[in-house]
Amino acid sequence: MDQWLIHHIQAFEAPFWTSIMKILSFIGSVNAVSIGSVPIILFLLFVWKSRRETVIFLIAVFGSALLNVGLKLMFQRSRPSLNAIITEVGYSFPSGHSMNAFTFYGILTYLCWRHIPKERIRKWLLAFSSIMIVGIGGSRIYLGVHYPSDVVGAYLISLVWLIVLIQCTRYFTRVKAA
């Protein structure tokens, strides 16, 4: 299945798409997510004045990065050797860029949701986050540095990570209020 999907995704290879995929791939990198986190943290602290949401954001993003490193060391899956457009080092499973994207945009959407009263704006936020998550994951397959199962696995791991984090946050909020 991985080989079939890689073949079909890479069939669209063209200079225009390669440029787009490299940009999306950069956006999902640890460096870009770290840099992008700074204004979000400042906004959460100084505009929304919410230490709680800042801590949730930090735990989500940096916890996901640590989880990714641990899982890569545990699985030690080699990267695909088919038609790589860029070169990456390290293990393949789970895709770090895909986990970064899912966790970053997922927690951002969760934190913003209750602050956005208009349904239409919420839909735009959800659409933007979804496009970024799928685009970044797809870029890793297109560029030949991950198997589709690395990307899907990363999404599922990040989903579980966010669910656990959000449920723990809700639990401790209820316990503290009681």
Rank of each mutant, 00 (worst) to 15 (best):
T173K: 15
I86W: 13
V152Y: 09
H146S: 01
S37K: 09
I59A: 13
F102L: 15
I9S: 00
V61G: 06
A154T: 02
I121E: 10
P148N: 11
L58A: 11
T103N: 09
S149M: 12
S130V: 06
P94H: 02
A65Y: 09
Y147V: 02
A177M: 10
V145N: 03
N31Y: 13
W113L: 06
S29K: 03
Q167D: 00
R122M: 03
L5N: 05
I107Q: 05
F57R: 05
F128R: 04
F57A: 05
F128G: 10
G137Y: 10
L73Q: 15
I85R: 05
T103D: 07
T87D: 12
H7I: 02
P80G: 09
Q167C: 00
L162S: 01
E88R: 03
K49E: 13
K72F: 07
I56L: 15
M132G: 03
A32F: 15
Y171Q: 04
S25C: 08
V164F: 14
T18W: 00
S34M: 13
S64Q: 13
L111H: 10
Y91M: 00
L44C: 06
V175F: 11
I40Q: 08
P117Q: 14
V151M: 00
R140D: 09
G36N: 10
Q76F: 01
Q10T: 08
A14E: 12
S95V: 03
I131Q: 07
F93R: 02
S95I: 06
S130E: 06
C112R: 04
A127Y: 12
V89S: 14
A101S: 12
L73F: 14
S98Y: 01
T87F: 12
